[in-house]
Design a protein around this nucleic acid. Structure first.
Lengths: 230, 230
DNA sequence: CTTGCTTAGTGTAAAATTTACACTTTGTCT
DNA sequence: AGACAAAGTGTAAATTTTACACTAAGCAAG
């Protein structure tokens, strides 16, 4: 008991909802199995306490790295949850972030407070600790809402991807079928994808062209008033 | 120094960006003049420390009431700001909210820590305390972004309003001129406004019809998959 | 009570965008 | 060589969006 204040203070944590896609372009969420009380053994979102000399986002980045090994990803603040009894220990307010990662780039490894770290299908989640189920719901909603109007889907794919992969990703997250020709026409007309003149390898059928997302071009167009929309 | 903890904790506050419209449908923001240090005498967003037995939103509601007298309004979480040095006293994280109110319904009154409370034009703001300028910028962006896709504009108008008032509100916030006929056709086709068969009074020209927003109808349509968009 | 002023209120045609839809091509595997 | 699997491609119809200008109604002033 070394830190004293004139007024009582809540504790503040960050939690991260990490989204990824599996090989079939299905949505996955990275959870850790808690190694300590409370909810020891339960699955939860990676996260932890904020240090006084780091910004909130820095804390999110640090916790992600510490608990899962993930580094340098798309990370954006989601929402702050602060119901009085959301944590049995104490009054704890948590600032939730969501991250989009290309699963292929990482080998997940559990560290620090986490007993284990694992990808779960967004459709078959285990019981979660605290109010993490609720946080996850908000994150899924946000992802769904944002995907149509911001070019963030590419964060979930490898840098080189096929149009079919991209379409499947949209279909998964938006939970609706899209027309192949219309989808291709629309996305190509934006001139945001560059045909890198390479072909998909290792498939036992006609290989697809590979494309890359041109972020700089997007920034330019955005400046000029362009609105991305699928 | 009565509260002791094993680990250091940041303080947590809430701040509210309160939007209103003046008679000419120009955007206004409610600020308070700080009566206490730091930044004594400077203008700032209404807000204050969270108590341990209230949720974050409850704190925002309470502070709004305490500092400005405002009660029962549209209030939504905006973003959480937590740069390490955003407050000179200490490490303070603030959870920002934004509120939309019908100016006509309230007489603003300064209370508690506020020396004064006043409406400022969104275009001519004084220097603000802390990082409140930044918070305000984020709030304006959010309002602008949300107005087109959610029927929240009505919160800024009296319950009975004319189509011209509504259009002016959109023009102000979106910062673009809209076509009168197209605007009317679009909004009326949604069947979200009810013609209450009353006329505007006290104007020295042809009086306009008054309408009300039908919130229940909106909820129904939303359920059925309808997407509001101006 | 007539005239002028100010804002309310109204419809349509052209342009642009979105939708629906099916067959050919290409590479691999046997 | 043939079968298989996914890649790749264009158009016509429907819908939505845009641009645009005059008449109507009430009030005020003479």
């Amino acid at each position: 008991m070394n830190y004293s204040y004139k007024y009582p203070k809540p504790s503040v944590t960050v939690d991260c909802v990490v989204f990824g896609l599996d090989d079939a372009q299905k949505l996955k969420i990275l959870l850790i199995q808690r190694g300590i009380s409370p909810y020891e053994g339960k699955w939860a979102l990676p996260g932890g306490f904020i240090k006084l000399d780091e910004s909130i986002e820095a804390a999110a980045v640090r916790e992600l790295k510490e608990e899962t090994g993930i580094d340098r990803v798309f990370l954006e603040q989601l929402y702050t949850f602060g119901e009085v009894n959301r944590d049995p220990r104490d009054r704890i307010i948590t600032i939730a972030y969501y991250a989009l990662i290309n699963i292929g780039e990482y080998t997940i490894q559990a560290r620090t407070d986490a007993r284990n770290a694992e990808w779960f299908s967004a459709k078959e989640l285990p019981d979660l600790a605290f109010d993490h189920q609720k946080i996850l719901g908000v994150a899924k909603q946000r992802l769904k809402g944002k995907l149509r109007y911001q070019p963030i889907g590419f964060e979930l794919l490898p840098t080189k991807f096929t149009l079919t992969q991209l379409q499947k990703l949209y279909e998964t997250v938006l939970e609706q079928k899209l027309d192949k020709r219309n989808f291709r026409n629309k996305i190509l007309k934006m001139k945001l994808l560059v045909d890198i003149e390479e072909m998909q390898a290792g498939v036992s059928h006609r290989p697809a062209k590979l494309y890359q997302f041109d972020k700089n071009r997007y920034k330019e167009l955005e400046q000029a008033g362009f609105n991305f929309e699928i």
